[in-house]
Design a protein around this nucleic acid. Structure first.
Length: 481
DNA sequence: TGCAATT
């Protein structure tokens, strides 16, 4: 008997011919589907893949075998799209997730159907767990909680395939973990049951349970991180009214400080080489922030102004934005001690700002979306891009307090770039409110840069606040003696 | 105002 195409939705027919009665109704061609009378499957139902099925068996033949474990919601033998030939496998969904689990444990690899030489396969379909759909990110754990604790927490929701607490190299928990369940349904159940449900001891807010990022999201995140570190991609003009002024003021100071920063320690050439990239990065950001400052500098008039690029901020434009720095360590000292913004260069060493503009070209070339008009003839410098590194060696990491509320990572990095190679710059953000906590961390790749930054920026006045810049407290835990 | 990081 030929079934209607689709086999499933015979509306309002006499009798629910698709109910799974044992009567052989001949509904075979396209799979069994629930009719209107059949209850929906559970929310956490699991779609099973069934493999090693003899080609001679269709849905009707298979049904009795599986019905033993519960009511079937859907059973479909896979057929070749073109030839319609039985592919020897099927998808099976029970109404209840429990039925699926039972079927899986009773049948998977447990039994071989006639004519097959390998045992039947019954397991969650790839679509159930492909990618990260059954992998959870768990945040806001207590730092003391280990894998066992996490397992205990999640175990009621299903079979845990994998459980990893994220740790720093030193073994300290980062307060988060990944938990992989046997199925998507289990993972969802855990989210429902646990997310926000409690606050673990030592955590600052309630438990976070969500799907782990997909690979794509992860890649995206990385991109954003890099972009943030470069400070080169502000999708729109920064929404930071007052902050722009702060930044401006700071940058103007630092344009001058730059010269001082590359004094002793590094050889002049190395210093310039190391710093030109940084200056380039901050200039790219700073220029769009500063239409006024840029306008002070007629096109082509500034040192090294390049066609096709926004005029870099210069040492000019000190007018209304000059911060009150009376008596501030670092800033005024540097301005009052006769240090010229353009100190004499050793013979053969180009003006650092000139070099910076050259570096700027490289950045512009590497990120044409930011500065489209610039020729892309310059090679990219992937090796110059910031790595995932988070912290420098001891003595290189600064703790900065009294940041303006508006300060973000980008502003922080800009502020400290002139003192050396910034390995990372992070403003600490309250997870709950997404607001800056007004402190942050900056890591350099060498202690000299860190010291220079402290000298120059500690006590620097911004509005009513003064920056506090000091070495980050070293974590004395796990000192190897 | 007070010392971090979500693969």
């Amino acid at each position: 008997m030929a079934a209607a195409p689709g086999g499933s939705a015979q509306p309002a027919g006499p009798g629910p011919r698709l109910g799974f009665s044992t009567a052989d109704s001949g509904v075979g061609m396209s799979g069994l589907n629930p009719g209107p009378a059949v209850p929906m499957k559970d929310h956490d139902a699991i779609k099973l893949f069934v493999g090693q099925i003899p080609r001679g068996l269709d849905e009707q033949d298979l049904k009795p075998l599986f019905e033993e474990f519960g009511r079937i919601y859907e059973l479909t033998v896979l057929k070749d799209r073109l030839t319609g030939l039985h592919k020897g496998c099927a998808f099976l969904t029970y109404c209840a997730r429990d039925s699926a689990l039972k079927a899986q444990s009773a049948l998977h690899e447990q039994k071989t159907l006639p004519g097959m030489n390998r045992p039947i396969q019954v397991k969650p379909a790839a679509s159930e767990g492909r990618g990260e759909d059954r992998k959870l990110f768990v945040g806001m754990l207590g730092k003391q909680q280990d894998e066992e604790d996490v397992r205990r927490l999640f175990q009621p929701f299903g079979h845990i395939e994998e459980c990893t607490v994220l740790r720093s190299p030193d073994g300290t928990s980062k307060g988060c973990a990944f938990v992989k369940f046997g199925s998507q349904g289990e993972a969802q159940a855990a989210i429902q049951g646990l997310h926000g449900s409690r606050t673990m001891a030592g955590a600052s807010s309630s438990l976070v349970v969500k799907l782990a990022d997909t690979d794509r999201e992860r890649a995206l995140r990385r991109m954003q991180q890099m972009a943030g570190q470069l400070g080169a991609f502000h999708p729109a003009p920064l929404p930071l009214g007052a902050c722009s002024a702060y930044t401006t003021a700071i940058l103007q100071h630092q344009a001058a400080l730059l010269a001082a920063a590359q004094g002793p320690g590094l050889g002049p050439v190395a210093a310039v080489a190391a710093q030109m990239q940084h200056v380039a990065a901050f200039s790219l950001v700073a220029a769009p922030l500063l239409p006024a400052a840029a306008a002070n500098s007629p096109p082509g008039s500034g040192p090294g102004t390049l066609p096709g690029l926004p005029a870099p901020i210069g040492i000019n434009g000190f007018g209304p934005l000059t911060p009150q720095t009376n008596g501030q360590p670092g800033s005024d000292t540097l301005y009052n001690n006769g240090l010229s913004p353009y100190p004499a260069q050793s013979p053969g060493v180009a003006d650092p700002l000139q070099q910076a503009y050259a570096g700027m070209h490289h950045y512009a070339a590497a990120y044409p979306s930011a500065y489209a008009p610039v020729s892309t003839a310059f090679p990219q410098q992937p090796s110059a891009l910031p790595q995932q590194q988070r912290e420098g060696p001891e003595g290189c990491n600064l703790f900065i307090y009294h940041l303006p509320q508006e300060f973000g990572d980008a502003e922080l990095i800009q502020t400290f770039l002139p003192f050396g190679a910034v390995v990372s710059a992070k403003v600490f953000v309250d997870r709950a409110t997404n607001q800056s906590k007004c402190f942050g961390f900056v890591s350099f790749d060498n202690p000299t840069s860190a010291q220079t930054a402290i000298q120059a920026m500690n006590g620097f006045q911004i509005g009513m606040k003064r920056l506090k810049v000091q070495l980050k407290r070293p974590k004395d835990a796990n000192r190897p003696y």
